[in-house]
């Protein structure tokens, strides 16, 4: 009975406080929303970057050029070996096929020479798991040493650059995000403290009539968590707006084709909500502590 009475008292007190001094709480909720939007945006951008790296390096294939005297049998063996090693899909390209391709890109090439100067080759589409520059380099080095192989080409520099870029972008994003987040945490704590400062008289009197620190603290914690959740709701609204309305406009404007649309996943929504609640909670704990002494 007493527990129920207390819980309902805490909830009522928390809601009442939100109702009584709306301005200060709006400020707290908005600063929380800013922090959470930043967090959500960083997560969306990071996953976009991942996808970008994935899709771009998907175009980079491993091409094995064979010596002129390679037999059908060697080629077949090599295909099996390459597919095993990279877990990818290997295709044999005959000199004739290669020339046809070149002709398609540069019309008139075929007429330049009577003989076909192009070698037999094997093209390997590398699966995502082996797409890292390091792994590809390893495979290329091993294949290069084989008897029948003339040379190996796999756009090493491109993969390297792409990975480097993605890493740099992610690092920069993390640093910027960290700074913004830190600032907002300070703002949130300060705002919550202001909200509590407005009620220090109430806290003092509660303590004089025999309230425990825990009793005084409880409504503020509920309040903080509620504010965090409200902030999360606003942040998710902004993120959905950005991904569903902002992104298509941007695509139309820049004419970016084939770009994967960013999405606010259920998991991200959960993360933002959890972060919001704990941010509000921790902020309140820190803010109320000052007023509980004596």
């Amino acid at each position: 009975m007493s527990l129920v009475a207390k819980t309902s008292y805490f909830a009522r007190t928390a809601l009442e406080s939100l109702w009584r001094s709306p301005f200060i709480h709006v400020v707290a909720v908005l600063s929380l929303a800013v922090a959470l939007t930043g967090f959500g945006a960083a997560r969306v951008v990071a996953s976009q970057l991942d996808r970008l790296v994935e899709s771009l390096s998907g175009e980079v294939e491993l091409t094995v050029y064979l010596k002129a005297d390679s037999s059908d049998e060697t080629r077949a063996q090599l295909v099996t070996a390459l597919e095993q090693r990279t877990h990818g899909k290997a295709t044999i390209v005959s000199p004739e096929q290669a020339l046809a391709r070149l002709e398609a890109q540069v019309p008139g090439v075929r007429a330049l020479s009577k003989d076909n100067p192009l070698p037999w080759s094997i093209e390997v589409a590398v699966p995502p798991s082996a797409r890292q520059a390091q792994a590809l380099r390893e495979v290329a080095r091993k294949v290069e040493q084989l008897e029948a192989v003339e040379a190996v080409d796999f756009g090493e520099a491109a993969v390297d650059r792409l990975e480097g870029l993605a890493f740099a972008l992610r690092l920069a994003g993390l640093v910027v995000f960290g700074l913004v987040f830190l600032t907002v945490v300070v703002v949130v704590a300060a705002t919550l403290q202001l909200a509590i400062y407005a009620r220090r008289e109430e806290i003092e009197i509660q303590k004089l009539v025999g309230a425990t620190n825990r009793f005084v603290r409880a409504p503020f914690l509920i309040e903080g968590a509620l504010q965090g959740l409200l902030g999360a709701l606003i942040a998710l609204g902004l993120l959905l707006l950005a991904t569903h309305v902002g992104w298509p406009r941007l695509v139309a404007l820049l004419g970016v084709l084939d770009a994967v649309a960013p999405a606010v996943t259920l998991r991200l929504a959960g993360e933002v909500a959890a972060l919001g609640a704990s941010l509000g909670l921790v902020g309140s704990v820190l803010a109320v502590r000052r007023f509980l002494r004596a």
């Binding site: 007493s2 527990l3 207390k6 509660q206 009539v209 309230a211």
Partner: peptide, 20 residues
């Protein structure tokens, strides 16, 4: 507490001990 009713002010001391 200036912003709470007389009744609430008196009740304050009871809420603190978890009275329904």
């Amino acid at each position: 507490l200036p912003r709470r009713s007389v009744l609430d002010n008196v009740g304050f001391a009871l809420h603190v001990v978890g009275t329904p």
